[in-house]
């Protein structure tokens, strides 16, 4: 999953990005509204974490401009806790609202819920036959047996599971799993796919030649 964090406070941006990366997200960073809006428009992010008090363009304006083009889930992360601010934020098209200071675990949970809802899934556990994917603990079980996956492998499984019965292209996988800082080798996706097949069974992921990959629920 690839998220964009727009935050003008460098220290805070840094720690949020680090925490999200540890959670397996690909994270892009923006330090002002202009940059944030540009990035949010040019990529299919799974979610955007948006501060409101931003230089150049404030968070509400970024949100309004983004909403004219995209439905990317947006979580507002701000120190402004007045009810009017929350209402304004949610009315401008934000999907969730979190007030600083916040618990990282709450930020993670809200992001997971946003991404899940955007994919049309209501529950935290996605079941694909014998395979169950728990997005809360980021763990996968096969016939109730835990399957050890690396963060990238898990992210790939989750991405495919959220888009089950849909063909996910290699480009999409790159877009959602790697941020701009990753050196994405051309065959990295194939390596991850073969590792997952080794752990969850050959038939778990179907290859559509020339198109991409698909899992069936």
């Amino acid at each position: 999953m690839r998220v964009l964090v727009v935050e003008d406070e460098p220290e805070l941006l840094q720690v949020i990005a680090r925490a999200l990366r540890e959670q397996g997200y690909a994270v892009d960073e923006a330090t002002d509204g202009e940059e944030g809006l540009f990035r949010a428009k040019s990529w299919e992010y799974d979610a955007v974490v948006l501060d409101l008090m931003l230089p150049k363009i404030n968070g509400w304006q970024v949100l309004a401009a983004l909403r004219r083009e995209k439905k990317t889930p947006v979580l507002i992360l701000t120190a402004r806790d007045a009810v009017t601010d929350r209402v304004r934020g949610l009315d401008s098209g934000a999907d969730d609202y979190l007030v600083k200071p916040f618990e990282l675990s709450e930020l993670f949970a809200r992001l997971r819920a946003l991404i899940r809802r955007a994919a049309g899934k209501a529950t935290a556990v996605i079941e694909l036959g014998e395979v169950a994917i728990d997005t809360r603990t980021r763990s996968v079980t096969n016939q109730t047996q835990p399957v050890p996956l690396t963060a990238r492998e898990y992210a790939l499984v989750e991405l495919l599971a959220l888009h089950r019965d849909e063909v996910v292209t290699r480009t999409q996988i790159y877009d959602h799993l790697f941020d701009e800082n990753d050196d994405s080798l051309s065959n990295l996706v194939e390596v991850h796919i073969s590792n997952i097949r080794r752990k969850l069974g050959k038939d778990f992921i179907e290859t559509r030649r020339g198109l991409g990959y698909v899992v069936h629920g």
Partner: peptide
Amino acid sequence: HELRTPLAIIHSNVELALS
């Protein structure tokens, strides 16, 4: 806002370090 921001930095850093 000015007080919450450094507080959030401290909180997030500590929470992340302890995870």
